[in-house]
Design a protein around this nucleic acid. Structure first.
Lengths: 193, 193
DNA sequence: TGCTGGTTAGTAATCATTAACTAAATTTGT
DNA sequence: ACAAATTTAGTTAATGATTACTAACCAGCA
């Protein structure tokens, strides 16, 4: 559904965001990095919003694939959550710019369409995780003294904050390695007994 | 140390941020809301960066007061954490715009001074919480099977995500009331057995 | 020949900021 | 005590940068 050049543009946009933050994603910077002039961008995208939407769509695809693959696997709930974390860390480690997009919701406040898009991604993932946790509670794998909705907050909160820290530290520590340790603590927290 | 007008300006800036996000904090919007012209702002602040710094200083004062009061109290560690949460929720419920500032680190990426300032606030609070938790572990109140550094991530991650959800929901639910329930789960998670 | 993907040149809007001026309040010198 | 000097806090008008975006044109190619 996307031309080669369109893919090149959104990939370059991602690089730009991870380098300079969402603020750095301007048509000028983008075209410079692509080695073409600014108006040339408009041969491939109607306007900037469409670029951002394409960006969020990519993010959505990347994360929802992870979540849904786990939902439909036949592992224990605890293992599903572990896999969820590991895959996320792997995905971010491979494409750090994705992390930059996830945490820039604040920037999209003005455009109604973008808010909708990003809320959609977040909501869908939360729902999937919630389902996994509830199944785990029914199977007596996951503690039931804390409501699943709260467990989601702990898990997603930790995931987000941890990645944010990595980002703040300019990717200087090994996300996958350090992340693996965090996952062990997550397991201790959500497991029954 | 601040004139009345300066306080008026930063208070108005906070309102603006909670209304339209950090993007909405322009000199034009600010002066319009204050009922003066744009250049008049510069009679009170050297430039926009100074306004943002004043904003972050206020945030720093607000949060560090909370953290340090708890550190020096002689309650149990678990109770300290509970109080920490409650006070934060209260503070945000009273001045919702503060919450908007806390989560806009992303916006400050370009200005070195602002990154430094906000990292300072976050770091200081994390350190205080870490101390509280370690003391709790030594007193056998708080579980020791998870390292305190990870507990900090769970606690701060949950706090941040929860407030962010409230913000996203346009303050439609009662932060203090719903927050109180979350606190009970936090206690279950960090308590020894 | 006509589409694709570029170019150059330019526009309108918005951004923070400055220059120059002014009225009113305050401080200072006698 | 009071006029002169200065400071304070505002104004209008403008500037240079940067933003997203457009119009008009052109080369290569199917």
């Amino acid at each position: 559904m996307q031309t080669e050049r369109q893919q090149e543009i959104i990939s370059t946009a991602l690089d730009l965001i991870s380098e300079k933050g969402i603020q750095g994603l301007t048509i000028k910077n983008l075209s410079k990095k692509l080695g073409i002039t600014e108006p040339a961008i408009y041969r491939h995208f109607e306007n900037k919003i469409q670029i951002l939407i394409a960006l969020l769509d990519l993010l959505k695809k990347n994360t929802s694939v992870i979540f849904e693959a786990e939902l439909n696997s036949d592992e224990t709930a605890v293992l599903k959550v572990e896999r969820l974390f590991e895959k996320h860390f792997k995905s971010f480690a491979e494409v750090p710019s994705l992390a930059a997009v996830v945490f820039s919701e604040e920037m999209f406040r003005n455009e109604e369409k973008l808010i909708a898009k990003i809320s959609e991604v977040i909501e869908a993932n939360n729902k999937t995780l919630l389902t996994i946790l509830k199944q785990g509670q029914q199977n007596n794998e996951i503690r039931s003294d804390i409501e699943a909705e709260h467990l989601v907050i702990f898990i997603m909160g930790a995931l987000r904050l941890f990645v944010k820290k990595w980002q703040f530290a300019k990717f200087t520590f090994n996300l996958q390695k350090e992340g693996h340790k965090l996952i062990q603590s997550v397991k201790l927290i959500i497991s029954k007994k």
